[in-house]
Structures are given as structure tokens and as C-alpha cells.
């Protein structure tokens, strides 16, 4: 366990970085609030205009879904393909390779460090938005809340793993801005961040269910709402865990083979 102290120190250091750049961080966060607020108005119009037309959810449940999605989206905002790509391209990873530190764990520590601060800010803002729009549905059962926390943690690991894998394209291209935007677009639609997956037509929902992204928003949000029965919840969280760990390990594999390829080809 002692070996993990250094990763803890790295996480702490990256949290401190957030404090230094808090102006940029705050603006980022408030900027994303506009998006949530626009969504709230849109769904409000839809729900109040056609009560019952959307079947599955009630309006308070939909509000809860939007807030949960907002909070889940607010973590690991400072970990992205740009940063990883720049580190790889400018050879900063070389110094990491020379040290007795696991490269992937180091990135994970750095990505997770700011989470307490990100969560606190997002919760505060989420609470204000929820209040302004007349409150949200709370979990009906404490068990839902407990399972939600597990699912949210897995969602965060999954997010890390996906970004980490995608970042490996930096070994072949310098266009990380485009790569990052493309990942975000695909993730937004298939994670359920833009719209709950149940609203999709069958073909689109089928596609979403075989992709890892649903574990980032949809699964934890539905768990929070208790919208799935017991076995389904267990299955969905299990799927989430398999994707999260599987991609985490796949990322290690990618990294190792990429480094090998580069050291053989490029010296």
C-alpha cells in the first residue's frame, strides 16, 4: 500500500494546480451551466406542454436526470487528449518512463486529484439550478443512492479509460483537438448526456447498448432514479465495471505497444 503514497501526492499536486488556475476553472464550469439551463428550459417546455407524452419519466425525474448528468460531466475536466497528446509529442513522457512510476497510474492520479473540488462546485451549482427549477426527484430508496455512488465511481474510471485509450492516437497524429472533439461528440450522444437513451428509436438504442459510453451517464443516472429493476441494475453496473476495467487494461496494452513501436522506430 505504501507504493500508493506517491500517487496520492501526485493527485494532491494536481488539485493544487486547479486552485492556481481557478479563474479558468470557474469560467469553464459556469459556461457549462448555460448549457444545462438551456436544457432545463427545453425539457420543461416539452414536459409541461405534453404531459405524459414522454411516458417513461416524470418531470421531476427528468430534472434529476439532467442534474446527475451535469455532475458526472463535471469531473476530470482537466484530463483530456490535448494534455496527454502534448506530453507525448513534446517528449515529456520520456522523463516519466525513466522513473519508477507507473505511467497510467500517474495520469489517473493527476486526473482524479481535482475531483473533490470539481464535485463540490458542481454540487453547489446543481443545487442552485435544481432549486430554481422547483426541485428534483430524490432517490426513492437509500439502496439506490448507495448503488448510484458505486456506479458513479465506475463511470469516472470509465471516462478516464476511454480518454486514455483515445489519447494514444497522439503517437500517430498531432491533431488532438479534432480527436478530442470527435470523442466528445460520440460520447455525448451515446452516453445519454444529451438525451436519455430510452427516447432513442430502437436501432440507435441498440447501438448505444453495445458501446461503452452508456456507462458514463445513463447507467448511474438510471440507478439514481431507481428506474431499473434489481437484476437489470446489477447487470448494467456489471457491464459498466467490465468496460471500465477492460478499457483500463486495454489502455495499458496500447501504451506498452506504442512505446515499444516508438522506441524501435524513432529511437
Amino acid at each position: 500500500m505504501r507504493g500508493f503514497n506517491k500517487y496520492f501526492a501526485m493527485a494532491k499536486a494536481s488539485l493544487e494546480v486547479i486552485f492556481v488556475y481557478r479563474a479558468g476553472f470557474t469560467v469553464n464550469l459556469i459556461g457549462s451551466v448555460f448549457y444545462v439551463v438551456a436544457m432545463f428550459y427545453l425539457w420543461q417546455t416539452i414536459f409541461l406542454g405534453k404531459p405524459g407524452a414522454l411516458g417513461v419519466f416524470t418531470w421531476p425525474e427528468m430534472k434529476a436526470y439532467l442534474i446527475v448528468a451535469f455532475i458526472l460531466n463535471s469531473t476530470m475536466t482537466w484530463f483530456d487528449e490535448w494534455q496527454m497528446g502534448a506530453d507525448i509529442r513534446e517528449g515529456r513522457v520520456a522523463t516519466d518512463l525513466a522513473r519508477p512510476i507507473d505511467f497510467q497510474l500517474k495520469r489517473f492520479a493527476e486526473a482524479s486529484g481535482p475531483i473533490p473540488f470539481e464535485l463540490a462546485s458542481a454540487l453547489a451549482i446543481g443545487a442552485v439550478v435544481a432549486f430554481v427549477f422547483g426541485g428534483i426527484a430524490l432517490p426513492a430508496d437509500p439502496a439506490h443512492l448507495a448503488l448510484f455512488i458505486v456506479s458513479a465511481a465506475l463511470a469516472t474510471l470509465l471516462k478516464f479509460s476511454i480518454i486514455y485509450c483515445v489519447s494514444m492516437t497522439a503517437f500517430w497524429t498531432t491533431g488532438m483537438e479534432g480527436v478530442s472533439n470527435a470523442r466528445m461528440a460520440v460520447q455525448n450522444i451515446f452516453s445519454g448526456a444529451l438525451i436519455p437513451l430510452v427516447f432513442f428509436p430502437d436501432w440507435l438504442r441498440g447501438l448505444a447498448s453495445v458501446l461503452p459510453f452508456q456507462g458514463m451517464i445513463s447507467t448511474p443516472a438510471l440507478t439514481y432514479l431507481g428506474a431499473m429493476d434489481g437484476p437489470t441494475t446489477a447487470f448494467m453496473i456489471g457491464t459498466q465495471a467490465v468496460w471500465a476495467l477492460g478499457l483500463f487494461l486495454f489502455g495499458r496494452l496500447l501504451w506498452r505497444s506504442a512505446v515499444k513501436a516508438v522506441t524501435i522506430n524513432g529511437g
Binding site: G175, G178, N181, I189
Partner: peptide, 15 residues
């Protein structure tokens, strides 16, 4: 880079 950028912009819109 420039191709990836264009494609990603298109993807954002398609979603």
C-alpha cells in the same frame, strides 16, 4: 490534423 478537425466538427453537428 486538418481532416480530423473537419470530421470532428461534422460529428458534433450530426449528434
Amino acid at each position: 490534423d486538418f481532416v480530423i478537425l473537419m470530421i470532428s466538427a461534422a460529428l458534433v453537428q450530426i449528434t
